[in-house]
Deep mutational scan, measured.
Amino acid sequence: KYFGTAKARYDFCARDRSELSLKEGDIIKILNKKGQQGWWRGEIYGRVGWFPANYVEEDYS
């Protein structure tokens, strides 16, 4: 189950295995919004990890 999707506004390079690298334009499935302050958990291309919420724009459609 996921909470919708978000589109990456910027590139983000994961610093460890718990984080999710993003490329601008990627569409991420949002799995959890209750991580550390400002971090969401998501899935993209079969990978799961945490990413900074301010790097994405949530899709409300």
Rank of each mutant, 00 (worst) to 15 (best):
K1N: 15
K1Y: 09
Y2N: 15
Y2G: 11
F3H: 06
T5E: 09
T5L: 12
T5V: 11
A6I: 01
K7E: 05
K7N: 02
K7L: 10
A8D: 01
R9N: 08
R9K: 15
R9M: 13
Y10G: 10
Y10W: 12
D11F: 01
F12C: 02
C13A: 13
C13E: 15
A14P: 07
R15V: 06
R15Q: 09
D16H: 14
D16Q: 12
D16V: 08
R17V: 13
R17N: 15
R17K: 15
R17F: 08
S18Y: 11
S18V: 04
S18K: 09
S18H: 12
E19T: 01
L20C: 00
L20V: 04
S21C: 06
L22S: 01
K23P: 01
K23I: 05
E24W: 01
E24R: 15
E24S: 13
E24N: 11
E24D: 07
G25S: 02
D26R: 00
D26L: 02
D26P: 00
I27E: 11
I28K: 02
K29W: 06
K29D: 09
I30E: 01
I30A: 05
I30C: 01
I30M: 05
L31F: 06
L31P: 00
L31M: 07
L31W: 09
N32E: 15
N32C: 14
K33V: 06
K33S: 04
K33F: 04
K34M: 09
K34C: 11
K34L: 08
G35Y: 04
Q36N: 09
G38Y: 03
G38A: 04
G38V: 05
G38F: 02
G38Q: 10
W39I: 06
W40R: 00
W40C: 02
W40F: 08
R41I: 06
G42A: 05
E43F: 02
E43S: 11
E43N: 07
E43K: 11
I44G: 04
I44A: 15
I44H: 13
I44K: 09
I44L: 15
Y45M: 15
Y45T: 13
G46A: 03
G46Y: 00
G46D: 10
G46V: 03
R47G: 04
V48Y: 10
V48D: 05
G49N: 00
G49R: 00
W50G: 03
W50S: 04
F51C: 01
F51E: 01
P52G: 00
P52Q: 05
P52K: 05
P52I: 08
A53I: 08
A53D: 04
N54C: 13
Y55H: 09
V56H: 03
V56Y: 07
V56A: 10
E57F: 10
E57I: 12
D59S: 13
Y60Q: 12
Y60N: 10
Y60W: 11
S61F: 08
